[in-house]
């Protein structure tokens, strides 16, 4: 049963075609990635979903047209978008505050999660006092506590150094196994997509269309040793090949 469904979504900015034809679906409790080169139009897709921009085509959530944009998604923007003037605790409760929950109740709801997010002891710190990885975890905490139907994560680890990024991916995979969020992740990192996702949509360069939909049959937890590691590498190589040698005659097995 798919929760989010997009059918032939298109978007142009003025004369610039950004999204040519996007059809995809995300099921309940599924972790889906959209993988594509920079500038393809990935963030634009989230702008349509969050209602910041309007496009053509159908966007359905639980079978109903997506018009009340405030309700379904908890959105994590490409940069962490932490407010430098708010302490981490107050950044984490931002979404709840906007929903009208009293500050005290919001804090009570968020506080127990700080340990799980590796932020215990940093509640009273300002974002500038945290490392990149901690900032991303704080941003993710702010996103998940909104308890919306679905997470939209736009390149959450794109700005991190390689070591921290790998650590964060492992952490997120483990978190996802506990919480089973329905999630749509944007990334341009093939390894990240394979490591985290149940399914991957590969986008072409702008104007973006979906060139391939790929199931990731790897077992979880994705510690990736032995056989699974080889399988993952093979999958990564295949995807890289699709992205780097686009072959239109193959068509896309999506339509």
């Amino acid at each position: 049963m798919s929760r989010l469904e997009l059918r032939h979504v298109r978007k142009a900015f003025g004369g610039l075609d950004v999204l040519a034809d996007i059809s995809l679906s995300v099921g309940a409790g599924e972790f889906v990635s959209i993988l594509g080169p920079s500038g393809a139009g990935k963030s634009t897709l989230f702008q349509l979903l969050t209602g910041a921009e309007h496009g053509e085509g159908e966007m359905l959530f639980d079978g109903a047209r997506l018009d009340d944009h405030g309700r379904h998604f908890a959105f994590m923007p490409q940069r962490d978008a932490l407010m430098p003037w708010r302490r981490i605790l107050d950044n984490a409760t931002l979404g709840l505050e906007v929903q009208g929950i009293r500050r005290k109740a919001a804090r009570a709801r968020v506080a127990p999660l700080f340990a799980e997010f590796g932020l215990a002891g940093f509640e009273r710190h300002f974002p500038a006092q945290l490392s990149g990885g901690m900032r991303q975890r704080a941003a993710l905490l702010r996103t998940v506590v909104q308890e919306r139907d679905m997470l939209l994560l736009d390149e959450p680890f794109g700005a991190l150094d390689a070591l921290t990024r790998t650590a964060m991916q492992r952490w997120l995979e483990q978190m996802w196994r506990h919480h089973r969020w329905t999630a749509l992740l944007i990334t341009h990192d093939v390894r990240e997509a394979v490591f985290l996702s149940d399914r991957i949509y590969v986008l072409s360069a702008r104007p973006a269309r979906i060139v391939r939909e790929i199931e990731v049959p790897l077992p979880r937890p994705r510690s990736l040793g032995g056989d699974a590691a080889r399988q993952a590498s093979a999958l990564e190589a295949e995807i890289l090949d699709i992205i780097l040698n686009p072959n239109p005659s193959k068509g896309h097995d999506h339509d």
């Binding site: 969050t50 910041a52 405030g70 998604f73 929903q99």
Partner: peptide, 23 residues
């Protein structure tokens, strides 16, 4: 104000006044 912050607040359900005060 960062554009992403505005987009995020809107997705949270904030109106213009709320976005002005918060961001």
């Amino acid at each position: 104000t960062e554009a992403e912050v505005g987009q995020m607040l809107r997705a949270m359900g904030a109106g213009r006044w709320r976005i002005f005060v918060l961001a």
